[in-house]
Design a protein around this nucleic acid. Structure first.
Lengths: 241, 241
DNA sequence: CGATTGCCGACTGTCGACAGTTTTACCTCA
DNA sequence: TGAGGTAAAACTGTCGACAGTCGGCAATCG
């Protein structure tokens, strides 16, 4: 995985079955090997992966907290299916988080942050030129993650990471519609320019535009596939507690 | 609910052991029966609660995702201890979420929302007059949760709920400093007035002031207890992934 | 006397098994 | 042929057990 980064201990990490299972499930869901709404059998999974049910269950709970799975008592785990409204909500929250992040970032735009972001945009442009759609998405998300990181609020970053799992889900789910490499490049350079200008208003405008474009892309896509995921859950669960 | 906490009680109802254990742990942590940084033994807990280790582990993972526990591989689960910086981050994220929420709420301020919020403020005022500090906090949080709810973004509400667990943790941890009932009342009526005015700027100002006050209260409190929770984790885990 | 090494207890990670429940398949009957 | 009921199959929730690992303590060595 590219550049400097902190060498993440490539040593033997044969442990952590839970995490391994979670990674496997995440990949499988994103790559549509499990369809939205599909039921996951614990025994089936444990057989396939050659582990017992305990780590599978714990991994499933982890994915549930990340919004990729939904558990129904006595029924098991189901792949999360986002409907149009939920999709809008995800992008609205993303807008909320990134607006705040870019506000903070503009106040503490260190040369290090500037350099890192610029480099990441270059990596992204390179990825956009290639054919690997998944990598393009990952580099794009990584750019935004860097923005959140340099905004200097760990908790804010965690909220973004939580959201990213769902974001990745619905983005990958749609990504037949390829954005042109130029569009991606200019769209991100606009953000850098806004940050360089130091004007909060300009930053706000840039991020609103940026996310608005992404939102349109995905929402348009989901209109085609159009899954609603509603079955019997007619009642509202809000307001409880 | 009572103070007889040490006695673990065989409140073993039939189903949903995980949720019951999670609730028990949450209460125990908030009420400081487990101190920040303390290690939780799975076998001890399972013995005390009269259940096996599986539901305890799953509940612990749930609390970990809520930020109340931290798991160290091969070491077990530890009660989360927030240092001053993390506390600031929590309130900064809260500000981020509530700003966005009040913006949206101002755009769709239905009579129903208006009525519900007003009623909740009254409940809060009543609670503030009483002696039960925990209830006052809960009613306060419930008011803000209602704001988020009527903002009409389920995902935003979920992010707030996630944050609330940590918020509750550090608020309750500090709450020797009682806010005066009048202060609480006026502080919330200001929010209602701002919403009634329909002015986004006024709403923004009100929520900034409101959360700023709460933040000062809590941060001041943590300065006294002053736990840092840092031990050996000198390395940064950000930027990974 | 201080540092190192080996041992011991405690604990976590994981597993296979059992009981209760839900789903499904089949069989009967109108 | 379709509807309804019943029994089997499959699955989840939970449990107790085993193995590998971690931290502490004591004995040993410099």
């Amino acid at each position: 995985m590219a550049s400097s980064m902190v060498a993440p201990r490539a040593f033997i990490q044969q442990q952590n079955l839970v995490e391994q299972v979670a990674d496997y499930l995440t990949q499988a869901i994103i790559q549509q090997h499990f369809l939205p709404g599909e039921r996951l059998s614990e025994v089936q999974l444990s057989r396939d992966l050659g582990v017992s049910r305990a780590p599978v269950r714990e991994a499933a709970r982890l994915l549930e907290s990340r919004g990729l799975l939904i558990s129904k008592p006595r029924r098991g785990f189901f792949v999360r299916a986002l409907n149009a409204v939920e999709l809008e909500d995800v992008f609205d929250l993303r807008l909320c988080l990134e607006r705040h992040a870019i506000d903070r970032l503009a106040e503490r735009y260190t040369p290090e942050a500037q350099r890192a972001l610029k480099q990441q945009v270059e990596v992204l442009c390179e990825a956009a030129a290639g054919n690997d759609g998944t990598r393009r998405i990952e580099e794009d998300l990584q750019f935004h993650r860097l923005m959140l990181h340099y905004a200097g609020n760990e908790r804010l970053l965690r909220a973004f990471d939580d959201l990213t799992h769902e974001l990745r889900l619905c983005i990958t789910l749609i990504t037949k519609t390829h954005e042109a490499p130029d569009t991606i490049a200019t769209s991100h350079f606009m953000l850098l320019d806004a940050l360089n200008s130091g004007s909060p208003a300009e930053c706000r405008e840039a991020i609103d535009y940026h996310i608005g474009v992404a939102r349109k892309f995905v929402v348009k896509g989901v209109g085609e596939t159009g899954d609603s995921s509603d079955e019997d859950s007619a009642d509202e669960d809000v307001l409880s507690r």
